[in-house]
Amino acid sequence: MQFIPALKQGKLLKRYKRFLADIQLDDGSEITIHCPNTGSMRNCLFEGETVWFSTSANPKRKYAHTWELMTTPSGGLIGIHSGNANALAEEAINNGIISELAGYDKFSREVKYGEENSRIDILLEAKDKPACFIEVKSCTLLEDGQGYFPDAVSLRGQKHLRELMHMVSLGHRAVLLFVVQHTEINSVSAAAHIDPEYAKLLKEAVISGVEVLAYRCEITSNEIHLAQACSVRV
Results as ranks from 00 to 15, higher is better:
56 S>W: 06
170 L>D: 07
194 I>T: 14
24 Q>E: 15
219 I>W: 03
141 L>V: 07
20 L>K: 15
106 K>I: 11
112 K>P: 04
104 Y>R: 00
213 L>K: 13
17 K>S: 15
42 R>P: 01
195 D>E: 11
234 V>F: 14
41 M>F: 07
152 A>G: 05
26 D>Y: 07
151 D>T: 09
78 I>S: 02
162 R>A: 02
12 L>D: 02
187 S>L: 13
167 M>C: 13
200 K>D: 12
211 E>W: 01
189 S>P: 04
8 K>E: 11
111 V>Y: 03
221 S>C: 09
32 T>G: 02
126 A>W: 07
10 G>V: 04
221 S>W: 09
168 V>Y: 08
90 E>N: 11
212 V>L: 05
12 L>Q: 01
67 W>D: 06
232 V>G: 08
213 L>T: 12
3 F>G: 09
144 D>P: 01
222 N>I: 03
30 E>Y: 02
139 C>P: 00
107 F>I: 06
178 F>E: 05
85 A>P: 08
205 A>D: 02
193 H>Q: 12
15 R>F: 01
86 N>Y: 01
161 L>G: 03
72 T>C: 12
128 D>R: 12
2 Q>N: 14
212 V>Y: 00
74 S>V: 09
42 R>A: 11
203 K>G: 15
220 T>F: 08
196 P>V: 07
55 T>M: 07
91 E>K: 13
176 L>I: 10
125 E>C: 08
89 A>G: 09
1 M>T: 11
11 K>V: 00
6 A>F: 11
94 N>D: 09
179 V>D: 03
56 S>F: 05
83 G>T: 12
203 K>N: 15
222 N>W: 00
216 R>V: 03
62 K>S: 13
75 G>A: 10
6 A>L: 13
203 K>C: 09
96 G>C: 09
117 N>D: 15
134 I>F: 11
212 V>Q: 04
140 T>K: 12
26 D>H: 10
111 V>C: 05
161 L>K: 04
131 A>E: 04
148 Y>L: 06
147 G>T: 02
6 A>C: 06
37 N>F: 00
27 D>N: 05
225 H>P: 00
129 K>I: 06
76 G>R: 02
